[in-house]
Structures are given as structure tokens and as C-alpha cells.
Write a protein that binds this DNA or RNA. Structure first.
Lengths: 242, 242
DNA sequence: GTATGTATGTTCGGCATCGTACAGAGCGAG
DNA sequence: CTCGCTCTGTACGATGCCGAACATACATAC
């Protein structure tokens, strides 16, 4: 086990200048994010923004029927709580921890102070937001046009990109919630991938064995978002993937 | 026919203070947006932002296969080209005129100048962007969970909200492109609505006869986005709908 | 070891949407 | 008026996903 995570494990925090880091880091608070924890509910007024290190958080939209769909994934590559600096304070989405780990959080007011005093953070946040928008939009398209098989591949890639190794702890039931499909649909798709030797799974633990193959089997949506993110934040993610 | 449209017909421009209007308006250029005109292609470097008055522009994501889906709709309520101020300069989407009309455009550099000198415009743009994000996210969910019938209702509401009357010029083929479904699917859904007396259509012209009924038949997605937009930009859209 | 809960596997009919094909109907150009 | 084009209507089987029900297997607590 490594010791406590460093703020720089978050790519956005790491991308700040030394001066900005010196101003902000004293105000960061390390928090543990257990699986399933809800960081905010639809409409909640946010108090903090969260910069994950090794945790993953899903932004979920929940329908009146209770059905839900994940519109984006945030890990060490980003932050949760853009509504705070976008000015809206809240959003209609829910933030749920998809993979347990740690994050650093910062009071919204501190963030805004830094914003107004120095443009650097603002520029970074805006660029990140644009990357996030791309992910959301591509998700919308993906939901419309691609099969569960393809979407599962895309989802697995998004997840392991944000984790330290090729393994993730996640039941098929939870994945189904994220993708907005039936659990049985995920079972079938995952079964196919296991038969192909692309992944291996067992009661809530999934290991990706053949990443290149996974990328081939995925729809284009993964690559589109990745390319755009690399373009928008090149120095932030020199190599998001291993 | 009314004369040339005024900049204030765009809700964002109208929401600016008199001082900001005085600084910006001299730089606005009125342009005509014919149906089908492509304002920008995926990856294009944007030179201007566009503030529609009576035109409607769709943000489309186009797949490798050529299939597409509309991610959001922008009319007098917004602007096209957020990538310019978000810092990315371009996006993977395509901007297509869905309903002909006029817009005022502004050189990206002018917008940025105003940004850096006065925070007012920045705040407004960010709030608008958040509203746009909401629309995108809800679109993703809607694509996953709702029927063509429901989505057509949602789409009609989004459109007439941005038009001066209850009529729109739009073939079923084009609507199908927007929704990312078959043209025949739209024909069926539209046929049902016409039988119910909710709409009336004829070779590319659709008239909404019973708006309340349309809202009932729509999925919740329309209301969710509308409520959130009202919250984020209350003074900008005192009453978006008639 | 047994009991209980959780995770996964399988099956079945049902339905929305798709892909394809073609037919009629309105409209404009010549 | 007629030709040609666009827009709309209808039908067909195919298919991917759904809802529901149930079986199996592993995991942990007691």
C-alpha cells in the first residue's frame, strides 16, 4: 500500500504553476470517497469542488422513473463541481463514487477567490469544462447509435484510464446502471468479451487483459473524446493511458 | 415583414448592461443564415461567435458512419461558438442552421477582449454554458430511455420556443437527422400527433395547435431543461415561451 | 457447516426500432 | 399539362433490447 495520495496525482492540480499550487494547496482537504458515496444530489447547493486522485466519480442523470444514465466519468483527470465556478452553484445531476479512493476538496469560495485574482486557474477550468462537454455530447450520440457491446468496451476504457492498473471493482449491476441498460445485457456483453479473452471477471472484479483489442471492439466514441481531450489539455495529460 | 432584426432580440445580448452593449454592439455584424448552412465543421477553427435572433442552429455530432445526432439546439436564447471563449477554439461538433433567419456575429478576439476587461460578460457566458451543458446531458439520457414519440414532442417544443410563432419549416427527413432516427419513425410519430390534433403538417411545414397537450406527451426532459435554464438565467429568459 | 445474501447465467415472449422497398401525393420547372 | 423531384405513407421481416422469472454459484457470517 502506498501512503496518502499527493495532490499532484490529480492532473488538473498538477498542471497549475508552482505559484498557484502554493496558494491553493494549503486549503486542500484530503477526503476518502467510499464506493457508492453520493457527493451531491440533483439540485444540491455545492460547497466544495473535488479533485480525485485515485477515485472515480460518475455524473448520473436520474429520471423520474428512477432509471438513470451516466453522462460522464471523472477521475484523476478532472474535478467534480463545475457548477460552482460556472455560476449555477448546482446541477440536475448526481455525483456518485464509482470506484473508491481519495480526493482533495476545496471550498467553493476559495476557488472563486483564486479565479478572480489570477486568470490561470480560470483558463484551465474552462478548458477542462470543454473537454467534459465533449464527453457528454459523445455519450449522447453513443446512447443513440451504438450497441451495448460497444458501449461496454468504451466504458471499460474510460474506467481503466482513470485507475492505477487494469483492474476494477464493479458489479455488472452497477455497470448496467451507468450505461442505463439491463443487468442481463451487461452479463451477455461481458460474457462475450471474456470468451474472446479480452477481459476476465469474477464477482465484482474485472481485469482488462487485452487493451488494444478492447479499443478495436469499442465504438469510435472513446477515441473521439480522447483525442479531443488531448488536444484541449495536452500538458495536463501527456499520457493518460499507460 | 418586419425590418432587420435588432441585436436585443437575442436574449443574451439583451441581458448585458447598457455599458457592455455600447462597447460590443458597434462590432456586431448582421448575417443571414439560410437553411442548412454549416456555421462550422467538426474541428474547424472558429473566427466568430453567432448570436441568433430568429434563426435556429443545431449542434450535431456526426459519426464515422455518417449517422448523426443533435446534441443541443440554439436560437435567440443563446450563442454558437462557446469553444472560442472556453479556450478550445474548436469542437468536434458541427453547427447547422435548422431554421433560416438572422444572427449577429462577433469576432472571437473582440469577445475575448471584453472578457478580460469586464467580468460581466464572462459570468453571463459561463452561466449560459452551464445551461447548455444541461441540455446536452438531458439529451444523452433522453436518447437512452425515451420513445421516438416522446422525443419528437420534446424536439417540437424546443423548436417553437425559439421561433416567433407556432409554425416551423422542417421536413420529417431533417427532424429524423436531428433525432438520430429513421425518417419513417418520424412519419409515424408525427402521424399520431396529427391524428390527436396536436399538430398539423404538410410538406415541410409543421404547425403546433395544442402546446399544452404537446408538453403532456413529451418526456420530462423538456421540462427539466427548461426549469434549469430558468434557474440559471432568470433575467435573461423572463418568459422564453409565449 | 449451514444459512443467507449477492453476483452471475439463462431463457422466454414482447416490443420498439431498424433496413429496405415501394407507392402515392404535392409542387415547381419546362 | 406534364415531367421530375421531393415529401410523406405503408408494409415487411430482422434485430437488439426489454421485463420477468428463475437457476446457479460463490462469499461471508454465524
Amino acid at each position: 500500500m502506498p501512503g496518502l495520495p499527493a495532490p499532484q496525482q490529480n492532473h488538473l492540480l498538477a498542471a497549475l504553476s508552482v505559484e498557484a499550487q502554493n496558494r491553493l494547496f494549503p486549503h486542500l482537504e484530503l477526503v476518502s470517497l467510499p464506493l457508492g458515496k453520493v457527493l451531491y444530489e440533483s439540485g444540491d447547493s455545492l460547497r466544495h469542488v473535488y479533485f480525485p486522485t485515485n477515485a472515480i466519480v460518475s455524473l448520473l442523470y436520474v429520471m423520474e422513473s428512477g432509471a438513470s444514465a451516466e453522462i460522464s466519468v471523472v477521475g484523476k483527470d478532472g474535478l467534480i463541481g463545475i457548477a460552482l465556478f460556472m455560476g449555477g452553484e448546482s446541477t440536475p445531476s448526481r455525483g456518485v463514487v464509482q470506484s473508491a479512493g481519495y480526493a482533495y476538496r476545496l471550498l467553493g469560495q476559495r476557488l472563486k477567490d483564486e479565479f478572480n485574482r489570477h486568470g490561470e486557474l480560470l483558463q484551465l477550468m474552462l478548458r477542462y469544462t470543454q473537454a467534459l462537454i465533449t464527453q457528454m455530447a459523445q455519450t449522447a450520440v453513443c446512447n443513440r447509435h451504438h450497441s451495448i457491446d460497444q458501449q461496454l468496451c468504451r466504458w471499460l476504457l474510460l474506467s481503466i484510464d482513470r485507475l492505477p492498473d487494469n483492474q476494477l471493482t464493479m458489479t455488472q449491476e452497477l455497470i448496467a446502471n451507468m450505461l442505463g441498460v439491463r443487468r442481463e445485457g451487461v452479463t451477455e456483453a461481458a460474457g462475450k468479451l471474456q470468451k474472446l479473452g479480452v477481459i476476465e471477471y469474477n464477482r465484482g472484479h474485472i481485469t482488462v487483459l487485452d487493451r488494444p483489442r478492447l479499443e478495436q471492439l469499442s465504438c469510435e466514441c472513446y477515441a473521439v473524446v480522447k483525442k479531443e481531450t488531448d488536444r484541449l489539455l495536452p500538458y495536463v495529460f501527456p499520457r493518460l493511458n499507460r
